[in-house]
Each structure stands twice: as C-alpha cells, then as structure tokens.
C-alpha cells in the first residue's frame, strides 16, 4: 500500500502527573502524518510540538521499537496495543487509522499496574511473580553437556511458543478481571515442556499462581480476551497446562 498523508487527526490522551495525582483526558490535534509512520513516531511528533509549545510532553514506555522488549503498551481506542492483531504498540502503523480520526490513548488499567505518569505504569509485579519460581534451579558451571538430554522437537516448539511472552502486560489490561493468568501460564508451560524444567514444574505453578493472587491480580474466568490481545499469540491452552500442573500438585500434597 502506498504512503498517504493523514492531514488531520485528533488525539485524546490520558494525562497524569505522577502516581499520587489524579488523571484526566486532554485533547490534541496533529497534522500531516505519514501512514508509513509508526504509532510511536506519531507520538514523538506530538511531543516535539508540545515541547515547543511549552507543554509537558506525554510520557510513555518504549525501547526496542520492534516488538520484542515488551516495554511499550498503550490502550488505543479500547484495545490493548491498538487496532491490529499480533503486534505490540511500537509495531502499529498509522496506516491503520483514517483521515480525521479521533484516537483515544490510555495507559494499561489494572490495580496491580499503577499509573506512574501519563501512559506509563509500574509493572514490577510481573518481575515479582517470576522471582517466585519462574526459573530452573541451576548454578553457572553445573550444567551437563547439552546433547546428553534429547528433547523432541515438538516439546521444544511448544516450549518456544510459550517462551515467546514478552511480559508486556496486554493480557492483564485486556482482561476484565485484570488477571495475569496468561502471563503466568506462559512461563509455566515453557518450563514444564522441557525435561530440565520438569522437576520443579508443580512447585513453580503453585508458587507463581500464589504470588499472582497476593499481588492483587484477578482470577481467570475464561473469557479469552487475553489471547486476542496478546502480541505474541500466547495460547490460552497454556492456562490448561498451568491448571494441570497446579491441580496435580495439590493432589500430591
């Protein structure tokens, strides 16, 4: 599709000074945006204008700008990562928007992800969940030679599918219960499918799920909204794996 110029768009953006202050929507207009520009490049342009007008630019998280670091995450027109499938916010392009469109931009909304400024939220709860068990207990230097343990390619692929999670938090933002189930299930599924991760699989499932509850994430009611918005296509079948590990662990106890 050839490049076009959007002569005018309207942006309705959530502004919030810091975690303590109250937020509000402000509206800005932007002219002459190339449809080949990425969404975040459009935000850069907006900020350049705001700075020149003496208005505080809009803060948002981003880093790699190629869909892999998981830093970015905007709630655009009611959808986590905006109106395109299987992508992160930084991979969204302006060709998805029409001339004259009004674009509503909000931060992730979830109790466990408090807003810290404008469109930035605190996702450290995700790190804390990982610290509760999202690893294999092995010290540097104590590994066996790699090919001693064979892994059938199918298990490796299933593990890889789940391991693709970038920790962006879109699943939580998309879920009406603000559940982190998909995120937790992805890690549990990744490691449970590998022989190296099996010994701790049950313990891992229990500890991570427990931590998730403690941190105030909601329960899962199987609406599947998470899967739809997940930029990495993490399947809700991982949640079944999590449940299986979790239940069998409880039976064992």
């Amino acid at each position: 599709m050839a490049e076009k110029i959007l002569r005018k768009i309207k942006l309705k953006i959530w502004r919030q000074e810091n975690a303590q202050s109250k937020g509000y929507f402000d509206t800005y207009e932007l002219e002459n945006i190339s449809t080949d520009a990425s969404f975040l490049e459009m935000m850069d342009l907006l900020n350049e204008h705001l700075i020149m007008e003496g208005i505080d630019p809009v803060a948002f998280d981003h880093d790699c700008r190629e869909g892999i670091c998981g830093s970015c995450g905007l709630f655009i027109n009611g959808r986590a990562h905006g109106p395109d499938n299987d992508i992160t916010t930084c991979q969204l392009h302006m060709r998805k928007f029409r001339e004259g469109a009004t674009i509503v931009i909000e931060p992730w909304r979830a109790k466990s992800f408090p807003v810290i400024k404008d469109l930035m939220v605190d996702r450290s709860a995700f790190d804390i969940i990982q610290q509760a068990g999202g690893f294999i207990t092995i010290n540097t230097g104590s590994a066996v030679v790699a090919n001693t343990i064979l892994i059938d390619p199918k298990s490796a692929e299933t593990a890889m599918d789940a391991a693709s999670c970038i920790g962006c938090g879109a699943c939580v933002a998309a879920c009406k219960n603000s559940s982190a189930m998909l995120f937790v299930a992805a890690k549990v599924t990744h490691l449970a499918n590998l022989p190296q991760g099996k010994p701790e699989a049950k313990k891992r499932a229990i500890q991570m799920a427990k931590k998730m509850d403690e941190l105030g994430f909601g329960g899962c009611s199987n609406t599947g909204a998470c899967e739809v918005e997940c930029p990495k296509n993490i399947s809700i079948s991982t949640i079944a794996t999590l449940n299986r590990e979790y239940l069998s662990a409880n039976v064992d106890q």
Partner: peptide, 11 residues
C-alpha cells in the same frame, strides 16, 4: 550447556 540447562528452547 548452561543455557540448555536453564531451559532455553533452542531449535
């Protein structure tokens, strides 16, 4: 070896 032991899902 180390990365495989950590659960890196190599091809």
């Amino acid at each position: 070896d180390q990365c495989v032991a950590q659960g890196v899902p190599f091809a």
